[in-house]
Each structure stands twice: as structure tokens, then as C-alpha cells.
Amino acid sequence: MIYAVIWDNLPYLAEGAAITVALALTLLVIGLVVGTGLGLIQAYAGWPLRLAATLIERFFRAIPAIVLLFLFYYGISVFYNISAFPAAALALGLRSAAYQSQIIRGAIAAVPAGQLAAARAIGMTRAAGIRHVVLPQALRQAIGPWTNEALSELKDTSLAYTIGVVELMRQADYIVSATYGHQLAVYSAAAVVYLALSLAANWALTRADRRLAVPGLSH
């Protein structure tokens, strides 16, 4: 009976899981691009830009994800009719950028100063040295801590449920309403899906970390 409920609604859970994965990927890409920018600014820019980047980082790290979701969803709605998915991707993506900037900044600081000096010694500009020597090493070193951040964001996509994104939790909610109950079974099924996604993501990222390993660069 309970199994039948789960079995019959498997397509809906799968659909929700697909949205969950899409949201996680989108927000992580936004976070990677913006976070790398913020990290570079914090590592290399003059103090006014550095201060601005630090304030942005502190703001997004201090405020709960749910509050950010509502702020972005309703805040943007005032002047632009935004739907829930992009609002969620933006809110969670910028929050992730704050966390990722910390990771990148730490990884940049861990690249020995001699690496940039050597790049400059063969005539590369500072920007080229950062781009071709420091950043590739920093990004490579960041994969480990980045894996934790990615897994944490995968779980936090469930909070997008609160502004109406039809991801895994919302689908579970629909199934509960449509079948008049079975909360325990349906939410447990959702938990299993999240667990499977987490394990899969962890496996893939650990594998990537190993495959991209460079002797002398791994920790």
C-alpha cells in the first residue's frame, strides 16, 4: 500500500529531483563565477574594492537562506516579474558566492609567492601570472573544500520550496496532498533521494579530485 504510493508517484519524485539538480547546478555556477571574482578582489584589489567585497560576503553569510530567498523573490518582483526558479538560483547562488569566495581566497593565499614571481620573471604581466599560474593552482586546490560547499548547497535547494519552486520537496508535498496522507513514507522517500544525490555528487567530485590530481599539488 505504502510502497504502491511511492511506486506510483516515482515519476513525480524524479521530476522534482531533476529540478533540484538543475537548481543546484545553476546556483553553483553563479557562485563559482561571482565567488571567484570576489576572491580575486579580496586577494589582489585595492582597499575600497576589497572592503566592498568583504561587506557583500559578510552580508550573504550572515542572513539565513530562507530570508534571502524571500528578499530576492519579493524584492525583484517589485520591478520585474521574476519566477521562483531564477529568484532562488540568484539568492542561493550569491550566498554560495560568499562561501566560495572564502574558499578561493584561502586557496590563493596557499599558492607560494614564488609562483607569481616566476611568472613575472619570464615577462608575464601580473594579470597574466594570476590568470595562468596562480588561479589554476588555486582552483585545483579548492576542489576538496568546494565539494563540501556543493553538497551543502544541494541540500539547501530544498529551501527553495518555501518560495514555490517545484523541486523535490514540493513534489513530495503534492504527493502527500494527492494521496491524503502517507507523510512518513513520502518524506522518507524524499530523504532517500536526497541521500542518493548527495552520495552521487560526493562520489563524482571525489573522483574528479583524484583524476585531476597533480603530483605536488594535492593535499
Binding site: 541540500k155 530544498s158 520537496m169 513530495a172 496522507g181 507523510q183 522518507s188 530523504a191 541521500l195
Partner: peptide, 19 residues
């Protein structure tokens, strides 16, 4: 650590009453 807090909260609040 592999599942979201929201799911855990729903299971505790909405799921456990069933048992």
C-alpha cells in the same frame, strides 16, 4: 548529513504522528 534539515523537520513534525 546527507539529507536536508527541511526533510528532517517534516519527518519529525508531519511523519512521526503517523506512528
Amino acid at each position: 548529513r546527507g539529507t536536508p534539515l527541511l526533510v528532517q523537520m517534516f519527518i519529525v513534525y508531519l511523519g512521526l504522528p503517523q506512528i
